[in-house]
Design a binder for these strands. Structure first.
Lengths: 249, 249
DNA sequence: CGTATCCTTGAAGGACTTCAAATGTTGTGG
DNA sequence: CCACAACATTTGAAGTCCTTCAAGGATACG
């Protein structure tokens, strides 16, 4: 399978593509790069000449606060292009790195620009994706700003699960989630210690199982409720209002 | 002065315009609406047919969490188009309302779409603005997720000050900031009580004065330091790296 | 098999919240 | 222009959620 398959699946999770558009996306080319957990792709202050399509694994965007603590701003799943913004914003304002061993396609900006110029509709779809990303950022602000630890972590798990499902990377109520408790803490504004205690509570309440990098959702409805999770903000095709599509629930 | 002047000033704070593009923006038309503090423009679940240009005042985007508490996700200053996203995302995933008496221009989607179609470069500039907005959302996640109350509020004040300055709405080290302490709390994930105590500390430390809806920054450098504020993420023209442009500092 | 990393649990401390009441400010109708 | 109501700010005291510090145990990997 060509490496752009996952991108096509991602785009079709948020919009529709014609055959011609699918072929145009499939012609996108670049360099495949293997990354180890912890490796950075671009850093704050960089001026990238490429954009990165995540093929497999997990990436995170993060910043280091004044106290030295890391805040994860976004988690990225296969099909995402986390540094598309460098097409229009010359200087990176945050870091992008791998939180799990990953494989990416590094696409020269010109490749992407040509695609957008020749297919304005695809440009609009990518813009749309930018807007969805912004909606996810807002939801994260709500998450760390307004929810208690228990609900906050529940919400994060719901989101990752649903996004993986949208690109076909969940197996029923189960998915790969190769995050350490420290990663989860950095994404939710909590300490790894408190994440440990809170995950124990979620397990003891029978909502999830989580071990060896695999998340299993035992009680989707109760987990959603705990996380106050309404997938509307993901703007996925196939979710109508606050209904949950797919095989979940 | 035509009402689109403020939009042109905003666009020129993040990019360059030709005379022809300026004229095209100036031809944007719509309905002028006056809003009182507390009034909503669009709500979660709505499917707007217009986008809103803020002419004067302050708007906020917000969500209500499960506990009933309001989380402000973004503050908008004149020149912003806070619901541009409704051009591409049919359903609103959050609310947009006035936090101060405001005046807006409600522009039919078709008006904006025509502008983008006839001037793709302006489309790219608006996309760029979308990306900057996303950068601001990320910074807010960092703010509420990683910083203590004192630093958090300092950061918010720095950002608002600098954004108002970028569109010419600050008078030296002073600007209108018609926010209640409850508003500030909802934007930073704090209670109004703790905001009150923290603002007192900021005043006592000689960093700011704040009364009757006016903010005066007495010690810009120390306030920046307290807020760990690096304006890079605002991607303003005229700021090089982390340098502070304009009349501040 | 040993070492690094990750997870878990306990105990103490701190930042922020909650509850409550007093004071100050703003806007409006008489 | 005053009086009054509604709203915003301030301060105190008690409580809670989460952090910090510390140490032991499990798991992964060369």
């Amino acid at each position: 399978v060509p490496h752009t398959d996952i991108l096509i699946r991602k785009l079709e999770s948020i919009g529709t593509l014609t055959d011609e558009q699918r072929q145009a996306v499939a012609r996108l080319d670049g360099t495949i790069i293997d990354l180890r957990r912890g490796q950075d792709i671009v850093r704050e202050g960089d001026r990238p000449r490429t954009s990165t399509l995540l093929l497999s694994g997990f990436l995170s965007r993060y910043k280091i606060a004044g106290t030295g603590s890391r805040q994860i701003l976004a988690l990225h799943t296969p099909g995402d292009v986390p540094d598309l913004q460098s097409l229009f914003l010359a200087v990176m304002d945050h870091n992008l790195g791998a939180v799990a061993d990953s494989q990416v396609l590094s696409m020269p900006h010109e490749e992407v620009r040509d695609l957008i110029r020749s297919h304005p509709i695809l440009g609009e779809l990518l813009w749309r994706d930018t807007l969805i990303e912004a909606a996810i950022f807002r939801e994260w602000t709500l998450n760390v700003g307004s929810r208690a630890a228990y609900n906050r972590i529940a919400h994060l798990l719901c989101e990752v699960m649903m996004r993986l499902q949208a690109v076909g990377l969940a197996q029923g109520n189960r998915c790969d989630l190769p995050l350490t408790q420290e990663d989860i803490g950095d994404a939710t504004g909590l300490t790894n210690v408190h994440v440990s205690r809170t995950l124990r509570d979620l397990r003891q309440d029978g909502l999830i199982e989580m071990a060896r990098g695999t998340l299993t959702v035992l009680e989707w409805e109760r987990l959603k409720e705990a996380g106050e999770f309404d997938p509307l903000y993901l703007h996925l095709r196939g979710t109508r209002g606050s209904a949950v599509g797919g095989t979940l629930g």
